[in-house]
Amino acid sequence: MSTYSVSDATAAAAAAPRGSVRLANLSGSYGVGLAASLAWLAFGVSSLYWPDLGDWSRTDSLGIGAIVIAAFVLFGTFGADYLGGAGEALRKRAPWLVALGAFLTLWEVATAKFAWLPLPFFPPPQSILEVYTDDLPKLLDSVFASVKLQLGGYIIGATVGFLTGVSIGWSQKIGYWVHPVLRFIGPLPATAWLPIAFFSFPSSWSASTFLIALATGFPVTVLTWSGVASVSSAYYDVARTLGAKPSFLVLKVAIPAALPHVFVGLFMGLGSSFAVLVVAEMIGVKAGLGWYLQWAQGWAAYSNMYAALIVMSLLCSGAITLLFRTRDRLLVWQKGVVKW
């Protein structure tokens, strides 16, 4: 399919006269790159040209930075053939760079320059940049605290959930005892435990770890269990006639066959554990991005809130990307997996 279209395009290019090829390139792939560069230039110029309505110290750096980016995009566009992979990557993302530049220009003009949006609640880009440069240590501390809490709780929850799921999928006796408990406790949102957890655990950190583990554990348990239970008995028959012992049936048949389900559980668990993390940090834990958000709101520091929100969304989407990469690597044997 792809070879067909590539050879087709090459043939067409070879057939067309030289001049028209160059023109087509200019209006095609070069055109988008040029537009991207212009959009970023507009962003830079708009922040430098008009005077600010408020008192922000990073306006000049922001403007110069935007113009530098515009220059990079320009050189990258025309030098794409000499830049290899980086040039190709830039060409692919050029339409997004146009949109981003246009959005930033509009944001800049609508806030810092003409205040079309009410000011303290909608801070301009330069004030968010200011947060990243001036409040970096505190922000980094918060990121570190959040990642530590999330990672600890998630790993505990995923491990316990996976082991529980495999045991109840495999042994009816264990299932008899665990299933009703799971049914009773599982559907309860983990945040409902917050008040109890915070006074029954020795520290707010251990309480939050427990809650994150709980939020992760339930979906992982249920999906691992259903994965193990739905393994075709024909696989077990085959393995048994070939001389497999029960441990081989669990480790080399049931678990690999259930793995696609397990990853759905891990994905769902990740989503619900983020929610618990932020709520726990807002309510009890005295560190982390949730706490930073709460603190910024208390001081009416809206630019800090936006800055923290952006970092938070980068972290969450980064975690999910990491999970999906792991899955794609482990499940290469699956045909046509859903891409994220």
């Binding site: 075709s232 024909a234 696989y235 028959d237 085959v238 048994r240 006639t241 070939l242 001389g243 048949v253 690999p256 066959a257 793995l259 499940l331 044997w333 699956q334």
Partner: peptide, 17 residues
């Protein structure tokens, strides 16, 4: 079951992973 008596089933039932 014992590996000296092996069965080939109607479906290949290969392990897809």
């Amino acid at each position: 079951p014992h590996p000296s008596r092996v069965v080939v089933f109607q479906d290949p039932t290969l392990f897809p992973w």
